[in-house]
Nucleic acid binder design. Structure first.
Length: 99
DNA sequence: TATCTGACGATAG
DNA sequence: CCTATCGCCAGAT
């Protein structure tokens, strides 16, 4: 089991993430809430960190509540986001990206 | 049972 | 605007 990840949390998070379309971004906290576990934002991070390339998850659409990008993945994430039309400046999403 | 860990979040300075 | 802290949640040791 992943640490910090409630049982059943993983599937719910993935489900919610799949509903996020191109050009959209959500915060870890938002996903946790949508998954039914408000407050477990760190759990979302754990899930994404543990997910493999074959999971086909749009992890790059997940950012911090203040728009910051995932630590250690800023470059790639910024590229993918900008490719979808999301404005990124200095390692953080610009505009109403948060929520 | 106590402590540590982390792709988090909100606040204070 | 930036760093420093503290609070959070639950599994792992």
């Amino acid at each position: 089991m992943l640490s910090g990840v409630p049982a059943g949390f993983r599937d719910e998070v993935i489900r919610a993430l799949v509903s996020v379309g191109p050009g959209q971004v959500v915060s870890y906290g938002d996903l946790a809430a949508e998954a039914g576990f408000p407050g477990a934002a760190r759990g979302v991070g754990a899930v994404l960190a543990a997910s493999g390339p074959d999971e086909q998850l749009c992890w790059w659409r997940v950012v911090y509540a203040d728009g910051r990008l995932a630590p250690g993945h800023e470059t790639r994430q910024a590229g993918l986001l900008r490719a979808e039309g999301v404005m990124v400046r200095h390692g953080r999403v610009v505009g109403r990206a948060h929520r």
